[in-house]
Simulated scan of single mutants.
Amino acid sequence: MSDGSTTRMNLSAIGASASVALLLVLAKLWALGLTGSLSVAASLADSGLDLIVSLGGLVAIAYAARPPDEDHAFGHSSVEDLAALGQSLFILASAVAIAVAAVTRLLGDAPPALADEGAGMGVMALSVALTVALVAWQTRVARATGNRVVLADRLHYLGDLIPNVGAILSLWASAAFGLTQVDSVVALAAAAMLLTGAVRIWLGGWNALMDRAASPEMVAGIEEIAGSWPGVRGFHDLKTRTAGSRVFVNLHIELDGTQTLTEAHDIGAGLRHAILDRYPQADVIIHKDPV
């Protein structure tokens, strides 16, 4: 798959995410006005943050796809990590606000009654259906491209299914049994999920900006390829670092010093393409040393 096709697929996945988030924000605003439900408010905040995250992801993927230039010889993929740090702060603030509101209601003498639960349940059911469809498309794109932004967005929407289903259950409990406090409990659970997601996004962006190495599984995979590649007598100084959805790989391979330059080049080029075939998100530089 060419870089252009990969970028278009990634943008289509994040564009669909932004469109779904915008539709759900409007629908949940209407449902919140009808019901006054904190669990719907929590889900609305989550969708609002989804919209911010998706728009940030669109900008990040588009900017990261720009080719290297004189000022950015290794490309622009680190913008994805900067976007992740900002997004995590928005998520954290939302989680705190929802948790405070939920605790206030739980400690109050008389929790406010909910209204029009049926309309609220309909909106949340729509949210679940659209989220399932979006996750299906993002799964297909992520398998084809391996883009970390798409994978993270997909994981976030999978997590959204829990508070959405919880909001439906809390509205049902209110309508059927008058258990309005279930709404606040669901909102607290949603706030906890948002907080967990904020920490995860922050750590991912921070580690990448600090040039954290690739995962042990990826390093082991590269070692396996290099160690078994024809013509390679050995290798050393394997170094990796992450930047956005890219992983930069530097590797020294040991070759027969008596062979021609063309033969040595062909061995190195073949090894580089083998690594890229398994890890399309990689940027690989191979140094050749005589045994």
Rank of each mutant, 00 (worst) to 15 (best):
217 E>C: 00
216 P>N: 03
170 S>G: 01
217 E>G: 01
147 N>A: 06
222 I>C: 05
167 A>H: 07
225 I>V: 12
171 L>C: 07
143 R>V: 10
140 R>I: 08
143 R>Y: 11
209 L>G: 03
187 A>I: 04
180 T>R: 09
153 D>C: 06
172 W>A: 11
159 G>P: 00
190 A>F: 12
212 R>M: 05
180 T>Q: 06
145 T>H: 06
222 I>K: 03
220 A>D: 13
213 A>R: 13
167 A>C: 02
150 V>S: 02
208 A>G: 05
150 V>W: 06
161 L>A: 06
175 A>S: 13
222 I>R: 08
166 G>D: 03
161 L>N: 10
203 L>H: 14
166 G>S: 06
218 M>G: 04
164 N>R: 11
222 I>G: 07
198 A>Q: 02
207 N>Y: 00
186 V>I: 15
139 T>N: 11
174 S>K: 04
168 I>Y: 02
154 R>A: 15
144 A>L: 13
159 G>L: 03
161 L>E: 09
139 T>G: 15
223 E>W: 07
176 A>H: 06
208 A>P: 06
202 W>S: 10
217 E>L: 08
161 L>H: 07
144 A>E: 15
174 S>I: 02
181 Q>A: 13
210 M>C: 12
136 A>Y: 13
183 D>S: 12
162 I>H: 13
200 R>K: 13
177 F>I: 03
142 A>G: 04
198 A>E: 06
198 A>L: 01
157 Y>E: 06
147 N>I: 09
153 D>N: 12
138 Q>Y: 10
211 D>R: 09
166 G>V: 05
167 A>R: 08
192 A>C: 10
214 A>M: 05
209 L>K: 03
197 G>L: 07
173 A>D: 06
206 W>F: 12
149 V>N: 12
168 I>M: 10
161 L>W: 12
166 G>I: 02
137 W>D: 10
137 W>E: 11
205 G>Q: 11
165 V>S: 14
174 S>Q: 00
151 L>S: 15
211 D>V: 00
174 S>R: 01
195 L>W: 15
151 L>Y: 00
148 R>M: 10
143 R>L: 14
190 A>L: 04
164 N>M: 12
147 N>F: 04
146 G>S: 09
161 L>R: 07
170 S>K: 04
180 T>Y: 09
186 V>D: 07
